[in-house]
């Protein structure tokens, strides 16, 4: 892989990793609260919908989801190698494609909201 490309992939990976470390615990905690039936006020339809409609909300959600997906894809590619799968091209194409699909879906739904 060319050095410039590697730096780019690594940069996205590091940014996504930092973001997931900071944001995902609280995200998982919110899912946990919903599962416990203790739905907080901000997750009632009007409020969450208003948040996802606002530009701040849209931008925040898009950055968090897309960077996290690229982070996960890059890491999963290495995990496949670590578990003994030696088809890096195929694995890389597959995981980056899934991240791309997720990113496009995020953009599409945020656009529609």
């Amino acid at each position: 892989m060319a050095i410039a490309k590697k730096a780019f992939v690594w940069g996205l990976f590091a940014a996504g990793g930092t973001l997931t470390a900071f944001v995902f615990p609280v995200l998982i905690a919110l899912f946990l609260l919903v599962a416990l039936g203790k739905v907080p006020e901000g997750l009632q339809f009007e409020n969450i919908h208003a948040f996802a409609t606002s530009w701040v909300g849209k931008t925040g959600l898009f950055i968090v989801i897309s960077l996290s997906l690229w982070h996960a894809a890059h890491r999963l590619r290495v995990v496949f190698h670590d578990f003994g799968v030696r088809m890096d091209n195929l694995v890389a194409n597959a995981v980056y494609l899934v991240a791309l699909i997720g990113t496009v879906m995020t953009a599409f739904y945020l656009y529609k909201i």
Partner: peptide, 18 residues
């Protein structure tokens, strides 16, 4: 990274419903 993937797509599902 698998958990990150799971929660990304859960959130995308939430966005689809919204």
């Amino acid at each position: 990274c698998l958990l990150v993937g799971v929660y990304c797509f859960l959130t995308i599902w939430v966005l689809a419903i919204l």
